[in-house]
Design a binder for these strands. Structure first.
Length: 738
RNA sequence: AGCGGGGUGGGGUAGCCAGGACAUCCCGUCGGGCUCAUAACCCGGAGACCGGUCGUUCAAAUCGACCCCCCGCUACCA
């Protein structure tokens, strides 16, 4: 009997958790903990909602409510979702509690007393009317360098100059338009540099860590550790526990990780033994596991350990089995991208065990795994329902129908040994995989045993045997029921609901969790009454993927004819040009064309512009679009709109132009090519394909959109007037457009 | 461009760190069996020379070099 501390990354309380959280950090520790409880270990598993930080205040501002209201709202939603998933925490708390604040204060003050924190002053804008320090983005003024009237506190968007505090002329607070004053503000810094060597030494002993986690950490350490500020001028968070520091809070990244400790203490108080947390944190024999997604690695392998070292007397992480990401159609699942598959709605539509099974079977343990509805449906229906569910049901229902109780075993010892050996081998493998946090492999071991069961059942043929030899049939069924029981116990960490269901149908005494893993080897007592079986899983019908029309990707773009009115060198970059372009309205565009065009050549030239790209700053200057150019090796040339095109004309190829802003990286995923027209409706883009668009003379280079790189059909770029976009005659077929 | 991860039968994957005899499993597919079971189960077949090239070795999917492609983060990518 041992104790195990299981720490789970804290979901951020500004949205409902989605499948990515479940796959990355929530389900693995639950499987792990359930297994440890089955083998009789005591597990303390803690987590909670991370409630502080700017994104929550932003959301609160938008909705006109307090940050606490937002944070508590999502805490409740997520807490419920987690319970709905049958994930059992010893305590799932939140960071905005008196207990957490008290523990954070203690850690902060202890580190400070030990000399690991120091303060450093900086000049910052302060608004006397709002009575607070202003983040740089809330300050606007005139840029002393270029006269731009809307320069931000830290940087001028127009000329790219960056400022130290106070350089802006006529600065105003964006909230109340008052002129801010400069005030000295101080912040505490964590002396991470002091832990550089101790961390390197500590990491080097971690042979059991996943190689990706270790490598990532080592690279971080090799890059050197910078001291980091751990306080901010802000009101939502854990207040800095020092007189004179009102209005400042402790940075979330510093404070949230302390949650593991504060939650342990809160749990101890709640069970009425306030010192009990020490058994998990101070006994060096107790292993602590931290489950999280890969984006969270440095906080748990560098910062948190550094804090623990500094604090002293508490166990450092034993293992950090970080998972990769679960992706959706190749994109990271995230709240911001809007493709989240949130748990509350999944739970409404599917059985918990189906979700748990799929996530475990498709867990991104070593590399990103992709989620798709069709894969979800196949795995659940063909593996979980057909293999495991069917085995449970055929054995239980047949036995129930013909015997009603567990039949006595009257067969030979050899037959019995064969089955028990198979069970034991499976149990041993599953156990060692679970201990090593190899969840996918463990689950496979279970499914293999289910398949063995199906094979065994088939081999015996009870439906025929029952007519010839009732005792022999009963004996065979007895062994099949042993397999059912073993499967129930072994699958419990993964699918607790159906496991307990099978346990009950078997007529087992006591509950599964209490009886534990050892029930696998304990023979069933003949004569125990079976319950009327019902299928434990049912098939699902998942969503249909929307196919989308062939050229739908093109309509994400909003292309316009533009005319360059001004062009000049970017003052602050080697390869960039800065241009003003008329696309019906004036926009500023930065392009990496210096090596190919001089500003004079460009002035007055007509170009094709992607007008709905999300603006981005390039070396300090905002670029509000991009010019389309074709690229073939060293040759880079701009695409030309037709002669008669006027600035602002749409280049929509007969489709509805996209209105939404698109990300640069999404633009990059589109396949745009230049090809040589070789005949009617045919174009050579490195190979010959058909294209849709106006008729063009042979030999002309035209720009083409391809639905995929291998597509056999493309869409030519043409304007609303029906004239094509052409490329330089020197271009070879297949040149890339960017 | 830099850093990290990955490229294994139609799709998805295991194996790679500690090289070795017919390359794993799931889905799909083809053929057969069974009828207890949620058109479920069982058996058998076809199908990959393990991204490419060159090396190390008696032996490489597994080690090394170079190259190509994909994904993530970062960037003077637009």
């Amino acid at each position: 009997m041992a104790k195990v501390l299981v720490c789970v990354a804290w979901p951020y309380a500004n949205a409902a958790i989605h499948l990515g959280h479940v796959a990355g950090s929530l389900l693995p520790p639950d499987i792990f903990s359930k297994y440890h409880r089955l083998i009789g270990n005591e597990v303390l598993m803690v987590s909670g909602s991370d409630q502080h930080g700017t994104p929550i205040t932003v959301k609160a501002d938008k909705e006109g409510v307090t940050p606490e209201a937002i944070a508590d709202r999502y805490h409740e939603i997520n807490k419920k979702a987690i319970e709905g998933l049958d994930i059992e925490f010893s305590l799932f708390t939140k960071t905005h509690t008196p207990n957490h604040i008290e523990v954070v204060d203690d850690v902060f003050l202890t580190l400070k007393d030990k000399g690991y924190l120091y303060k450093k002053g900086t000049q910052q804008y302060y608004c006397p009317k709002c009575e607070k320090f202003l983040p740089d983005r809330y300050v606007e003024g005139i840029c002393p360098a270029c006269g731009n009237e809307k320069a931000r506190g830290d940087q001028c968007e127009k000329c790219g100059k960056t400022f130290e505090g106070g350089e802006l002329t006529s600065a105003v607070c964006l909230h109340c338009s008052t002129a801010p004053e400069m005030r000295e503000t101080e912040h505490y810094f964590l002396k991470l540099s002091a832990f550089h060597q101790p961390l390197i030494d500590w990491i080097s002993g971690k042979e059991n860590w996943k190689s990706s986690v270790k490598l990532f950490t080592r690279n971080w350490l090799e890059a050197g550790l910078q001291d980091r500020p751990i306080t901010r001028d802000m009101s939502w968070g854990v207040p800095v526990p020092l007189p004179g520091w009102e209005g400042k809070v402790i940075y979330v990244w510093f404070e949230a990780v302390i949650g593991y400790l504060s939650a342990s203490k809160e749990w101890a108080k709640k069970i009425g033994r306030p010192e009990e947390w020490k058994a998990y944190w101070q006994d060096p024999e107790v292993r602590s596991y931290y489950f999280l997604g890969k984006d969270n690695i440095p906080f748990h392998t560098i910062i948190w350990p550094a804090m623990l070292m500094g604090y002293g007397g508490l166990n450092l992480p034993y293992d950090v089995p970080a998972n990769e990401f679960l992706t959706f159609k190749g994109d990271k699942l995230s709240k911001s991208r809007g493709n989240s598959i949130d748990i509350p709605s999944m739970l409404q539509r599917f059985e918990v065990d189906a979700i748990r099974y799929y996530v475990a079977a498709n867990m991104p343990e070593n590399k990103d795994a992709d989620f798709s509805w069709s894969d979800f449906e196949t795995k659940v229906n063909n593996e979980l329902v057909a293999t495991l569910g069917n085995f449970y049901h055929r054995v239980l229902s047949f036995t129930y129908k013909h015997f009603g109780t567990v039949p006595e075993y009257k067969g030979s010892d050899d037959d019995r040994k064969e089955v028990f050996d198979a069970i034991e081998a499976a149990a041993k493998q599953v156990a060692s995989d679970l201990e090593a946090c190899e969840f996918k492999r463990a689950l496979k071991g279970i499914m293999d045993l289910a398949q063995y069961g199906n094979r065994y059942f088939d081999g015996v043929g009870p439906w025929a045997l029952i007519k010839k030899d009732r005792d022999a049939c009963g004996s065979a069924l007895n062994l099949n029921l042993e397999i059912v029981k073993a499967l129930a116990v072994m699958s419990y960490p993964f699918m607790p609901r159906s496991a307990k269901g099978a346990w009950k149908l078997l007529g087992q005494e006591g509950d599964l969790e209490a009886t534990g893993w050892k029930a696998i080897a304990a023979p069933l007592s003949g004569g125990q009454k079976l319950q009327e079986p019902k299928p434990l899983f049912s098939k699902i019908a998942a969503e249909k993927e929307d196919a989308g029309s062939a050229f739908s990707g093109f309509s994400a773009l909003n292309l316009k004819v533009g005319q360059i009115t001004e062009a000049g060198n970017h003052p602050n970059a080697d390869s960039l040009l800065l241009m003003q372009v008329d696309i019906g309205k004036k926009v500023q565009i930065v392009a990496g064309l210096k090596a190919y065009y001089s500003p004079d050549e460009l002035k007055g030239r007509k170009v094709v512009v992607v007008s709905n790209l999300k603006p981005a700053k390039l070396r300090g200057y905002e670029s509000q679009g991009m010019l389309l150019a074709a690229e073939a090796g060293e040759l880079v040339t701009l695409l030309s709109p037709p002669e008669d095109a006027a600035p602002g004309d749409a280049v929509n190829s007969g489709m509805v132009p996209g209105e939404k802003q698109i990300e640069f990286k999404d633009f990059q995923k589109l396949t745009l090519r230049v090809g040589t027209v070789v005949g009617k409706g045919k174009v050579d883009v490195g190979r010959e394909i058909r294209y849709t668009g106006p008729e063009v003379a042979e030999g002309t280079r035209i720009a083409v959109f391809l639905p995929s790189p291998e597509a056999s059909e493309g869409l030519a770029f043409f304007t609303e007037k029906g004239a094509p976009v052409v490329g330089d005659q020197r271009l070879p077929g297949g040149a890339t457009v960017r």
